[in-house]
Write a protein that binds this DNA or RNA. Structure first.
Length: 323
DNA sequence: AATGTAGTCAACCGCGAGGTT
DNA sequence: CAACCTCGCGGTTGACTACAT
């Protein structure tokens, strides 16, 4: 018996997602959490297969995604982790908060591969390229140059990033001949090292997705002061009423927040990087922009971080808030 | 300005793992 | 134990964009 398709493909839509579909998916997941993906399209009213929905959510719609190019530090981590793990993109991604396996894979194929080749490193083996693409150097010299190159990036990465670096630790543990043989203990070590590195990162960046279930939103940061809809949730604390009072009047019926029943998210305020959601929200004028004048009421992000009390919600609170 | 080429990245496809019946 | 189901992963594709000619 042949394998059944993941879903009945007749009549299902393929290709790029429309904003309306995104809206439906976000709305559904926010309301119901991440349940059986197979059932999602039906329940959410989407003509997509569950797989497509999952992919769209994990790679693009998730609120905790970082957008933009990988930083040098992230890139270095990818290189190191790739040396240890090979093309196990999801494993690699799990060490990079807010990054998806797809994103890392793409970045590897489009940027890092080239970079490494330029440096005379074979992206597959992480060893010096043999001949063609590198100037002919005697092998020992070649090795030295590669090592220098690696050290150079490491230094840059370390300088740029937090003080804790897994780089040196990885390198110390790295046995080139066996680097691609992944063992449980090796992976554990990597996990530990990466985790320790990100313990430090967390202190600067905010949170690590390793600790934030993507959809079962324990510990999702819930903002206050963002309750554009009249169904705003009482969980929002002090500032909720003031920030949007004026903006709500400028809302039209298409207000996405109303449509989405969005809970009051709190996004990182400093160096605002709210990922797609920024674009997403922007695209529906939900940045509470005043459409009449050019005065943009950026109340969504205006309150200084320290004025926004953070709430950690457990799932029940989250769901209650949504309802 | 028009066309060709390269680069980027969202999305798809097929497969395997693991769980359930 | 086999058949089936669901999910997640990695490889690949193709649409879109930027840049070059």
């Amino acid at each position: 018996m042949g394998r059944q398709p993941c879903c009945d493909k007749v009549g299902l839509k393929k290709g790029p997602w429309t904003s309306d579909e995104d809206k439906k998916l976000i709305n559904f997941i926010l309301a119901n959490g991440q349940c059986c993906w197979r059932a999602v399209p039906k329940l959410a009213g989407l003509l997509r297969c569950g797989k497509s929905c999952r992919l769209r959510w994990t790679n693009y719609l998730r609120p905790d995604l970082k957008r933009g190019l990988l930083s040098e530090y992230e890139e270095k981590m990818v290189i190191d982790l790739h040396a240890q793990l090979g093309n196990r993109w999801s494993k690699i991604a799990s060490h990079l908060p807010g990054r998806t396996d797809n994103e890392i894979k793409n970045h590897w194929n489009t940027h890092i591969k080239k970079k490494l080749r330029k440096m005379g490193i074979d992206p597959l083996t992480h060893k010096p390229l043999s001949t063609i693409e590198t100037p002919p150097l005697p092998p020992p010299q070649q090795e030295v140059q590669v090592q220098e190159n690696i050290q150079e990036i490491e230094q840059q990465a370390v300088q740029q990033s937090c003080s804790t670096s897994i780089v040196s630790e990885l390198d110390q543990n790295k046995e080139p001949e066996t680097s691609l043989q992944s063992t449980v203990t090796q992976e554990e070590e990597i996990n530990n090292m990466a985790a320790s590195a990100y313990d430090t990162m967390e202190q600067t960046d905010g949170f690590c997705i390793d600790e934030v279930p993507l959809i079962e939103p324990h510990e999702i940061l819930v903002p206050c002061g963002l309750s554009p809809s009249s169904t705003s949730i009482p969980t929002s604390s002090s500032s909720s009423s003031t920030s949007t009072s004026s903006s709500s009047s400028s809302y039209d019926s298409n207000n996405i927040l109303e449509d989405l029943l969005l809970p009051d998210f709190e996004w990182p305020i400093n160096n605002v990087d709210i990922g797609l959601w920024g674009d997403y929200l922007n695209s529906w004028d939900v940045l509470i922009s005043d459409v009449v004048g050019d005065r943009k009421q950026t109340t969504m992000f205006d309150p200084p971080l320290n004025q926004c009390s953070r709430m950690i919600l457990d799932q029940d609170s989250w769901i209650n808030g949504l309802l």
